[in-house]
Amino acid sequence: MAMQRYILKRTGSLILSLLVASLVIFTVIEIVPGDPASFMLGINAQPETLAALRAELGLDASKVGRYFAWVGGMLTGDFGTSYTYRTPVTEMVADRIGVSIPLALYALVLSVLIALPAGLYAASRRGQAGDLGVLGATQMGVAIPNFWFAMMLVLVFAIHWRWFPAGGFPGWEQGFWACVQALTLPAIALALPQAAILTRVMRSALLEVLGEDFMRTARAKGLSARQTLWRHGLRNAMIPVLTIVGLQFSFLFAGTIIIEQVFYLPGLGRLIFQSISARDLIVVESVVMLIVFGVILINFLVDLAYAAVDPRLRNRT
């Protein structure tokens, strides 16, 4: 019962966030001066052709009407038609998303796989050489810009040693491993700074938990220090770690936009930059909404994960 109520409440706030975000994006794009139809047809366009195009793009409707048409379209999977390419935005996005999402997920998995053991190691050796080493490494990791790191990776692993391709994406129809290979360097570049942050969070969350009273109760039961950490410490430390993992996914998702530039990957990022230079605002609008939707959805899932980890939340709605 409590869990259902919690989910219901979270779902409500998810919908509200999406609604407000869509309004904000629509309003911002509406501020842009100029008429996309005349932009597309050039200066010498016939008024009749212009009017026809405007009708076709739905630009003749009122602002309110256009907003609802846009939102309604998105709900049914129709993101409108690109002003420049005259193809449905949905198709363009579907192609690109097959690069961006796997890349972000790959990076997230790498970051978690690096950070959890590193944080656990550092916390269990608090103040010793190993801990200080991990802390120093994370300071460096946080300071390195991911796109610069990407350039260095290309220089070393693609150009010097030729272990990985320097850029480009073969497409999933060329086989899974070829794609994984193409995404490996970008994923490492994205994951490293995030792993550094997550390691620090993991370490401090564990240290915080180590000072809790219930850890002492566990020791008094006869659990060894290590058992106490594994059985009682980890799950409690996961609560702050989860928050950061959720935040990181949005960082990573947005980070792909830049990393795609370095590796010439045909993802959402490249689509956005192409659309901005072509002033293809319907594409920008829809892709931005899609990314924001992804971020809000991830935060929603993190909220649900919280409740799974922490029974106290289920009652405190």
Binding site: D213, F214, A218, A220, G222, H232, N236, D310, P311
Partner: peptide, 28 residues
């Protein structure tokens, strides 16, 4: 040794603490 102490704690010596609000693991 520490392992002998672990075998002893909880079996031969039990302990009750001051703060019941925080002495239990909240997620178990």
């Amino acid at each position: 040794s520490e392992s002998a102490l672990c075998a002893l704690r909880g079996r031969d010596i039990g302990m009750v603490f001051q703060e019941p609000m925080t002495a239990l693991n909240p997620v178990q």
